[in-house]
Each structure stands twice: as C-alpha cells, then as structure tokens.
Amino acid sequence: MIGEISPTDLLVLLGVAFAAAFLTRLAGVAISGHIQADTPIFHWFSCVGQALVGGLMVRAIFFPSTPLGDTLLLDRILAVGGAIVVFFLFRHRLLPSTLAGVLTLAALSIWRDL
C-alpha cells in the first residue's frame, strides 16, 4: 500500500510526476510559438487533439477502468444516446443534455438496484 512509501520518496515521486507532466506542456508552448491560428498545421494539431481527447472520453464511458464500469454497458449506451438526442433537440444546449444523460444512468442504476 502507499502508506509504506517514505515521505522523502513520496516527494521524489511527486516531483518526478510533475516534471514528466510539465515537460509535455512546455513542449506544447515551445511548438505553439511557431504556429499561427487558422493555418493547416494548426488544424492538424487540433484534429490530433480531438482524436486523442475524444478517444479517451469514449473509452472512459464505454470501456472504463473506474467504478463507472460497475454499471451496465447497455445503460451507458442508453444514457449517452438520450443525452445526444436532447443535445440536438435543445439546439446544442449542454446543461440539459448532460443532465439528461447522467440522470438516465442514475435512474437505470437505481432501478436495477431495487
């Protein structure tokens, strides 16, 4: 368990984790200095970002390594489907559509838990 790691080692591990995370942000800043908005290379980076973040979010919903995986895949599909329907019905409004999805999953989970 984590409790067995000494405080010094914890600080070193935290520092290492911070440095590794910070380096990627620093690399982004350095590259951004050579890129202007609304150019093809800008849009390529944007596409890569959309694919990375979109892929991670889809994975977080449908193939989660978190307790969200304790819910049924069918319920998650219904919740996301409901959210997307509300999203387009309500002219891309995020609050009602996100709430619709989460409340659908909550209702289905409680119903199955009865």
Binding site: Q50, V53, G54, M57, V58, A60, I61, P64, T66, P67, L68, G69, D70, T71, R76, A79, V80, A83, I84, F87, L94, S97, T98, G101, V102, L105, A106, S109, I110, R112, D113
Partner: peptide
C-alpha cells in the same frame, strides 16, 4: 448505485461540447 454515475458527467460533457 449512484456513485458510479457521477463518473459519467465529465466525459459525457466533453463529448457533447466537442
């Protein structure tokens, strides 16, 4: 039963905003 459902909020919100 409610604890896992909270984990849907952020990824769903980000998918919709994308």
């Amino acid at each position: 039963a409610l604890q896992p459902t909270l984990l849907l909020l952020t990824p769903l919100y980000l998918v919709l905003i994308m």
